[in-house]
Design a protein around this nucleic acid. Structure first.
Lengths: 208, 208
DNA sequence: TGAAATCGTTCACTTAAGTTAAGAAATGAA
DNA sequence: TTCATTTCTTAACTTAAGTGAACGATTTCA
């Protein structure tokens, strides 16, 4: 699961490093020096589609940042998978159990082959010594994340399932392509059959 | 709307100061000196039931912390109020517009007579000079808030309206007493009539 | 105090989601 | 490639939420 060199099976011109630094640039500015330090920390991991990174009941200290690919967070409730979030390029994911050291209540798995940055609080000391701005960046990211999270929640609450699907089509059209329907449907808060029906309904309307 | 002395119309033994310091103690420890500095900043406000603190379209830099009472956040969509959150004792509320200086997309009003701490980023310099731990505390609070927010969102997505109501009954039974039904219902993502029906259904079940 | 507005409930009806089942299509593994 | 599994769709039926309207009860306030 570990890769020494960050390579990409597609022939996109942007390297993983570029993606990472472009992202960081949104929050703080880095010198070349700092960039090199960051790369030297060897935080990159390549993970195969289907891999389960975190299981219910498991304790973990790992936090993830998606450079390429897609992670899925899901619960198993009454034997049924309930997907509550997807994490794609530029998304950060700190499992709840990292903060309180409790066993996780949910699973995290790879929807696609994925390239990640994996960090954990134990590295904090080392990272912080070599890369002091890390803390500031994390805080800015957390604030932004919280704000976006709240807006998403509001949007979810104030919408019908159909409206939620249309919003998704607007805001994250890629997800609808890359994620299996039955995972999408529980993300929208409905059953797979209802999503099928709902899609058929929308298609019917648009035809007139 | 401003009060010099923080008094309380009930005869609870805990003063507003006690409530505040008990809360802060969960995150950081304060010396008597620091407590006095904090009180001297004059951040307390008393606000009447029904007061609208923030309107759609309005810009504001104020952040709120509820010491006593209840705030409500709501949107007006197609002429209809959609309540998405309640903030009661010990809840912090940073309107989205504070961060990005955009006009607000929602309203914030007082469900009850409420005692608040009001801060804004412009005070950051002064507060930080007099009270350096403030920053750390905010960060810890933000992290906890984000975690709780995510769990709430997951719970909402994976539950039916009836289950959401039962959860609310478990987790925030006070809300059901203090908040009008029609505001609660939209918080649960349903119409007032549906909430009435749902409550009747539950009562029917419990009678057997 | 009295009139008006707001609020909660109920009812009848409509619409959409849940459930169960079946079959077609796509995917994966031997 | 073939067989088995998973995934997606469709259908019929059930259940619950949305809608519009009516009716007291409560609250507001002039």
């Amino acid at each position: 699961m570990v890769v020494a060199h960050i390579t990409d099976d597609s022939n996109n011109s942007k390297t993983m490093q570029d993606i990472l630094f472009d992202f960081i640039a949104k929050y703080i500015s880095l010198t070349e020096e700092e960039k090199n330090v960051l790369l030297s920390l060897d935080l990159f991991r390549s993970v195969k589609k289907g891999t389960i990174l975190l299981k219910e009941g498991q304790k973990s200290r790992d936090e993830y940042f998606v450079l390429k690919g897609c992670l899925r967070k899901y619960y198993i409730i009454d034997g049924e998978e309930k997907t509550t979030a997807f994490f794609t390029e530029m998304d950060a994911l700190t499992p709840h159990c990292v903060k309180n050291n409790d066993p996780s209540e949910y699973f995290i798995s790879c929807v696609e082959n994925t390239i990640l940055i994996v960090t954990n609080p134990d590295m904090g000391v080392e990272v912080n010594a070599k890369f002091p701005k890390f803390d500031l960046m994390c805080r800015l990211m957390a604030e932004e994340l919280l704000a976006r999270q709240q807006i998403n929640f509001d949007e979810f609450k104030t919408s019908s399932p159909e409206q939620r699907y249309l919003n998704l089509l607007q805001n994250r059209p890629d997800l609808i392509q890359r994620v299996p329907q039955h995972q999408l449907s529980s993300y929208l808060g409905i059953k797979p059959q209802s999503l099928s029906r709902l899609r058929a309904r929308i298609l019917e309307k648009s035809k007139g």
